[in-house]
Design a protein around this nucleic acid. Structure first.
Lengths: 256, 256
DNA sequence: CGCTGTATTGACCTCCTTCAAATGCGGTGG
DNA sequence: CCACCGCATTTGAAGGAGGTCAATACAGCG
C-alpha cells in the first residue's frame, strides 16, 4: 500500500482544465522516463535548432527567449513545472526562439514519435495537449496586453498574479507565497523594461504592502488586493477548478 | 476547361508551410459553404462568448482585441484572409478576447463538428490546422518582441514587413504594395502606442523613403531596405516557399 | 455644404531609460 | 575567520522616447 505516487506536474496542469481518465494519467506518467538535471542559466535549446525530442519541465523554472542582434533580449514565456518547452517543434520543425533555464531544472526528454504516437491513438490526450498549447497562446495574448497597455507597476503585479495561480495549480505555491528564482534583470527582459525600473517598481509594490520578498521567495500577503490593483482576470488561464492542491517546497536564488 | 477555381486563401496559406494533397484541398474548399458579409468596424465575437461555429476570414481584415475596464484596448492579432478567428474555441470553450472587423469582411461560418470531424478523420489536415495555430503563436511571440524591445519606428516597420509577407502568401499583396485598411488609431492599439506618436513615426518612415502611402494603400518601395531597417527575420512565419502568387485586388478606406 | 471621422501639428509633461557608482551578499580560497 | 571576487540589488542624476491635451486640417459622405 501507499506506493508513492510520481509527482507529475503535467497531469496536474492538464487536469485543471481538461478531464483525464485514470488511463490518460497513466499514459502521461509513462512519458516521464528519461530525466536529466540541467544547471541554472543554461541554454536548453537554441534558436534555429530542430530538436528530435520534446522537452518537459519537471522542476525548476525556464524561459523562452529571443535575442536580437544588439544583445537585447525578450523573454516570451516563463516555463514552470508541467510546461512543455517545445511541443510545437513536432509540427513546425524549427525553433524560432531559444529555451534557457533560470534555476536548476529537471527536464524530461520525450521522443517526438512517442508524442505523435500517443496523440494519434488517443483523442482524449490530443485534446488535452492541444488545450495546453492553446492556453500558452492565451497567456501570450495577455502578455501583449501587459506590455502594450499597463504601467510598469501593474505589469509586475499582473505577472506575479499569473505565476501565483499557475504555480498553485501544480502544487508549487502556497496561498500567499511561492519561490521565484528570477533576477530583476530577467523580470525586466520579460516585461520589456530596465533592471533599474523593475527595481524601483518592486520597492514601490513592497512599500505599499502589496508584496514582500523573503530571499528569492515572493510573498503576496493579500492576493485579492494584488489582483484588484492590476485588474487581474484569470479567465485567460482557462482553469476551471483553481482547486486547492498540496504544496511542495522548492529551493532557489534570491530576489530582494 | 477553365472551371473558375474557388479563391481559398486558407489553402494558399497552409500550402505555404505544409504539404497538402489534392484531396485535402478539396476538403478545405468544401468548408467554404456558408458565407456572410460583415460590415466594417463590427464585433464578430465578443469576449466571454462560447461560439458553436468556427469562423474564417475570406476577405477583408479583422482583429483580435481585448478591452480593459478603462476603455484602453490592445489588438493582439490582425486577421487577414485565410485566418481563423476562433479555431481554439473548439477546445478552450470560452473566448477570452473579442474579434472585430476592420474593413468589410466576408466571413465563412463552419460548424464546430465539421472541423472536429475533419480533424479526427484526416491526420494530414489535423497537422495542417495545428500548424496554423502554432504559427499564430509564433507571430504572437514576435509581437511581444516588438512591443518589448523595438522603438516605435521599427515596430511599425516590422509590422508592415510581416503583413506584406502574410498578404503575399494569400495573393493579396504585390511585390511593393498592399491594401491596408487600418486607421492610425488601430495601428496604435496594435503596437501599444498613441495615435499621435504613430502619426509622427509614419511621417518619419515616409520622409526617409522607407514607405509611402496612396490612400489606404501602403507602398514599400524597397522591401529589403525596410526589412533591414527593422531587422526583420521572417523565420517566425514558418513559410517555406514564400512563393510568387497571383495578386488580387482589394478595396478599402484610407491611411495617409 | 455641413457632418463626422481621421490625419496632422504644437506645446508641455512624465514615465521610463541611460549611465555610473555604491552597496550588499554568497561563495571561495588563503 | 577574513579578504576578496562576482553577481544582484540599490541609488542618484540627467536625458529622451513617447504620452497627454487640445486645436486644426482634411477627406468622404449624405
Amino acid at each position: 500500500m501507499g506506493v508513492e505516487h510520481l509527482y507529475n506536474p503535467l497531469t496536474k496542469k492538464l487536469q485543471s482544465g481538461c478531464h483525464l481518465t485514470a488511463e490518460d494519467v497513466a499514459r502521461l506518467d509513462s512519458l516521464i522516463a528519461d530525466r536529466r538535471v540541467v544547471a541554472a542559466r543554461t541554454d536548453l535549446i537554441r534558436e534555429g535548432q530542430r530538436p528530435s525530442d520534446v522537452h518537459l519541465v519537471l522542476s525548476g523554472f525556464a524561459y523562452r527567449q529571443k535575442t536580437l542582434h544588439d544583445g537585447r533580449r525578450q523573454i516570451m514565456a516563463i516555463l514552470v513545472p508541467g510546461d512543455f518547452c517545445d511541443l510545437h517543434v513536432a509540427i513546425l520543425g524549427i525553433m524560432d526562439h531559444a529555451i534557457s533555464t533560470v534555476s536548476e531544472c529537471v527536464i524530461v526528454t520525450i521522443p517526438q514519435e512517442t508524442v505523435l504516437d500517443l496523440v494519434s491513438k488517443f483523442n482524449h490526450l490530443t485534446r488535452a495537449l492541444w488545450w495546453a498549447t492553446l492556453v500558452d497562446e492565451a497567456i501570450l495574448r495577455e502578455w501583449l496586453v501587459n506590455l502594450g497597455q499597463r504601467s510598469a507597476d501593474r505589469q509586475l503585479a499582473h505577472l506575479f498574479c499569473e505565476l501565483h495561480l499557475r504555480l498553485k495549480v501544480v502544487g508549487l505555491a502556497d496561498d500567499d507565497t511561492f519561490a521565484l528564482p528570477m533576477t530583476q534583470a530577467e523580470l525586466a527582459d520579460t516585461l520589456g523594461l530596465t533592471t533599474v525600473h523593475i527595481n524601483r517598481m518592486m520597492q514601490q509594490l513592497r512599500s505599499s504592502g502589496l508584496i514582500a520578498t523573503q530571499g528569492s521567495r515572493l510573498v503576496i500577503p493579500d492576493p485579492e488586493q494584488l489582483q484588484a490593483f492590476c485588474a487581474f482576470d484569470p479567465t485567460y488561464l482557462h482553469r476551471n477548478g483553481l482547486g486547492r492542491h498540496n504544496v511542495q517546497k522548492d529551493k532557489a536564488p534570491r530576489l530582494s
